[in-house]
Design a protein around this nucleic acid. Structure first.
Length: 302
RNA sequence: GGUGCCAUAGCUCAGUUGGUAGAGCAUCGGACUGAAAAUCCGUGUGUCCCCGGUUCGAUUCCUGGUGGCACCA
C-alpha cells in the first residue's frame, strides 16, 4: 500500500532539515505543509526552504502564491490529493512536511465541502459586524442555524461570522454542510511528530528570530508593507515589524514580540497535536530511528 | 557619613483605616472543518526584604538591619 509520511511538529523543531534528509534518502520530493511559506514574498520571516535547499530536493507548495491570492485548507486538500495521485503512480512513498495543523488534517482526514464565501457576502457581514456588533449577529445565527448556535464559540467573531456567511449565501444552515462522510484515503498515513524539550525549543525559536533579522527580515517586511492589510500578512514576524515601521514599537520590543508570538504559536500547535493519538513522537536528532520506522511502515503491506 | 523615599507574583505596580492580598503583561492550559503563523476562551499559595517589638492577630504600626534610588556633605 502506498504510504504518506507526514512530518509535523511545532515551529522551530527542525522539520525543514529533517525533511531534506529524508527526501534525499527516499528519493522523493517534499510536499510542504506550511500555510505561510506558500506565499512567494514571505521567505525570510516564514523560514521557507532556501533556493539551495530547493535545489537539493524538489519542493511543492513553496512560494506559489502572491500575497493577495485567496487560498484555504480545503483548496490545499484538493491540490495535495491531486499531486499524491500522480506521485503514487511511480513511487510508493510521499513526504508531507510542515506545521499547519488544519492543513495536515485537511489532507489526512478530509474537510467538509463548504462553499467558498463570495466577496460580496464577506463584505456585507464585515460591515454588519462593525455596525451592529457580535451579539446581534449571534442572535441572527440562533434563528438561521440553532444547531450550530448551540456549539459555536459565541465570543469568536470569525466563527459566528463565517457561519452566517454560509447561511446567508446558501440559504441553508451552516451545520448542514458539516460532519459529512469522512473520506477513505487510498494510502496509509504515518505521522511522525518532532518533539523537543520546551526549553530547547524556545532557545531554537529565539535564535532563529535573531537569525532572521540578520538575514534581512526588516527589508523583507518593508517590501511587503504596502500589502499589510492582506490576510497573508497577518503573520508572526510581519505584523510586529509593521508596528515598528509605524513608529509604535521600538525594534527591540518588536523582536521580543516576534519571539514571544512564535513561542505561543508553537504551543498552540502542540495543543492541537496532543489530541491526535496517531502521531508517533520522536527526537528530531534520531534520524536513523526515524528512517527505520518509515521503512518498516513501507514494508508492512497490511 | 547625613537626610528622605522605596522594598508585595517572573516583570511593572496597586492594596490592606491591623483580620495573611490583586491588576496589567509574561507564563501555562484549552477550543478549532473553506481567512488557521488566523481567531477565540480559560488560568495567580506569593517566606507581602530580614530580625525583634506592640497586639487576640502585623504584609500593614514601631525599633534595628540589609538592599535600591534621590538629595545634602
Amino acid at each position: 500500500m502506498n504510504t504518506l509520511v507526514v512530518l509535523l511538529g511545532p515551529t522551530g523543531a527542525g522539520k525543514t532539515e529533517l525533511s531534506l534528509s529524508l527526501a534525499e534518502f527516499f528519493h522523493i520530493p517534499i510536499i510542504n505543509c506550511d500555510s505561510r511559506q506558500l506565499f512567494r514574498d514571505l521567505k525570510i520571516g516564514t523560514a521557507a526552504p532556501t533556493p539551495d535547499e530547493q535545489k537539493r530536493v524538489k519542493h511543492y507548495f513553496v512560494g506559489t502564491l502572491a500575497l493577495d491570492e485567496y487560498y484555504s485548507a480545503a483548496q490545499y486538500e484538493i491540490d495535495v490529493m491531486k499531486l499524491l495521485q500522480e506521485q503514487f503512480q511511480t513511487k510508493p512513498i510521499a513526504l508531507l512536511s510542515g506545521g499547519s495543523m488544519l492543513y495536515i488534517d485537511a489532507v489526512c482526514k478530509g474537510i467538509d465541502d463548504i462553499p467558498t464565501v463570495d466577496s460580496y457576502t464577506r463584505q456585507m457581514l464585515q460591515d454588519r459586524y462593525a455596525k451592529e456588533g457580535l451579539e446581534n449577529l449571534c442572535n441572527e445565527l440562533q434563528q438561521l442555524d440553532p444547531s450550530y448556535y448551540k456549539e459555536v464559540d459565541r465570543c469568536n467573531p470569525k466563527r459566528v461570522i463565517h457561519a452566517l456567511e454560509i447561511c446567508k449565501m446558501t440559504g441553508k444552515p451552516y451545520s448542514s454542510f458539516r460532519n459529512q462522510v469522512k473520506p477513505q484515503r487510498p494510502f496509509q498515513i504515518l505521522k511522525i511528530g518532532l518533539q523537543r524539550e520546551r526549553e530547547e525549543l524556545y532557545k531554537r525559536i529565539n535564535a532563529r528570530v535573531d537569525k532572521m533579522i540578520e538575514n534581512g527580515l526588516i527589508e523583507e517586511v518593508k517590501r511587503v508593507y504596502p500589502y499589510r492589510s492582506f490576510n497573508s500578512l497577518n503573520t508572526v514576524g510581519y505584523k510586529e515589524l509593521f508596528n515598528y515601521l509605524d513608529g509604535e514599537w521600538t525594534l527591540d520590543f518588536a523582536i521580543e514580540k516576534i519571539k514571544q508570538n512564535s513561542r505561543i504559536y508553537s504551543r498552540k500547535q502542540t495543543t492541537w497535536y496532543r489530541k491526535d493519538e496517531t502521531i508517533i513522537w520522536l527526537n528530531p536528532d534520531d534520524i536513523d530511528n526515524i528512517r527505520n520506522i518509515i521503512t518498516n511502515k513501507l514494508m508492512n503491506k497490511q
